Simulated scan of single mutants.
Amino acid sequence: MTAETRTVPSGETVRVDLGERAYDIVIGPNALSGLGGLVAALAPGARVAVVSDETVEKLHGPALRAALSGRVEVAATITVPPGESSKCFAELERVVGALLDARVERGDLVIAFGGGVVGDLAGFAAAVLRRGVRYVQVPTSLLAQVDSSVGGKTGIDTAHGKNLIGAFHQPALVVADTALLDTLSPREFRAGYAEVAKYGLIDDPAFFAWLEGSWREVFAGGPARIRAIATSCRAKARVVAADEREAGQRALLNLGHTFGHAFEADAGFTGRLVHGEAVAIGMVLAFGFSAKLGLCDPADEDRVARHLAAVGLPTRPSHIEGGLPSADRLMDLIRQDKKVERGNLTFVLVEGIGKAFVRKDVPETAVREFLLERLESRPKS
């Protein structure tokens, strides 16, 4: 199966080919304005409940309601505090309760209107509400538009780690309005860019090379931004269509995430280290660990680190504010990684840029030794 792409005015639509559960990713500036018509065509007569965070609701809630007005009845608008801390049992319970209070039925739709936190939380709520209702992703961050809104992974965090409680529940539609990204802070946009670069590092070296020369245009907006987002979505759509539940190939999308999630969990899922920053550090570490194992040239790690640093992303554990965890603490968190099988560690490693692969049963001793080296190192002057 392949990801089908077709051009629409000032944007693109990418098809995620999953048979009966196939759906479109509509990408482009002002895509939000067409949401009402798309939802009405998808579920004629259905009501919708919007789940958002307080910041997104304040910035973009009026535009969302204008897009739905006259076409779709809004049963409720539910907001959660912004930030990763909202991906928790307490907020899940509150959101599900509000959906039930609004009498959202199986034939209705939930709209996840926000970044990755809202998408994961609202998607999980939709997955468990009445044993499953459909939902629409309207991602408002770069990270969500290129990664978390596509593929049906939903969930919450716990003290044991990130996204360890959740469900696979595919959206019925994704609407990625690239103009909404203009309201992101530079830090948030950079964090999302780490996931864009990831697609080049996995299996598309030409895309990574293009990003090295065009990242400023991506940040500025316009055609380069649309191209970067659409390329990323096509890449993820292909992988999801081939391996929906991460039985094999889809694990490649976790390049840098095993290391990154451990640092993110140690930071308490707070503003000390946001997800994309953790992924940036994790990807550099994945290349460094691969080089240590003799799998790739150390120059590949340097090239990746240079590009991410040029963008403004952290690339070393020592760049994390507030102190570093011990290697033993990180190993405890890595053992909770979702890819662990019967206690054996699984990592996404590389043989070079665009040559990622999954390796199972990675020796803990090798990982711990590598972490000790990197935790003790200092940034280059």
Rank of each mutant, 00 (worst) to 15 (best):
H257M: 14
A126V: 03
T79H: 06
L18W: 00
A31R: 14
V274G: 00
L109S: 02
E341S: 10
D302L: 15
I320C: 02
K339V: 09
R374N: 02
F208T: 06
A49Y: 01
T55P: 01
F357M: 12
V95C: 02
A299Y: 04
V284M: 08
E91N: 10
K87I: 06
G19Y: 11
T270G: 01
A286E: 13
F189P: 08
G70P: 15
A122C: 09
A76S: 15
G192Q: 10
V367E: 04
L293Y: 00
A235R: 15
V348D: 03
G352S: 14
G37C: 06
G248C: 14
I27D: 00
A305F: 11
A299S: 12
F289H: 05
R303D: 04
V80D: 08
V350S: 12
S33P: 03
L121S: 04
E84D: 09
F357P: 07
V138F: 08
S85Y: 01
V118W: 12
R94Y: 09
E246H: 10
Q170V: 04
C296T: 11
G115C: 10
S69Y: 11
I226S: 08
V358M: 06
R238S: 14
P363I: 12
G288T: 03
G115W: 13
F208V: 07
K380T: 10
G37L: 05
T79W: 04
L121P: 05
R238Q: 13
V174G: 00
A327G: 05
F370I: 02
T13K: 06
P298E: 06
P223D: 14
A286T: 05
K360V: 09
A309G: 13
V8R: 13
I78V: 13
I165R: 01
A191G: 00
L180E: 03
I25L: 10
V48G: 01
F208E: 13
Q145W: 00
P298S: 02
C88Y: 06
T231Y: 11
I27H: 00
V146K: 06
S326K: 12
I165K: 04
R134E: 13
T140L: 09
V358S: 03
T346K: 14
A242D: 15
D182P: 07
R303L: 11
G132N: 06
H60P: 12
D302N: 14
E246I: 10
L143G: 02
V340F: 11
R103P: 00
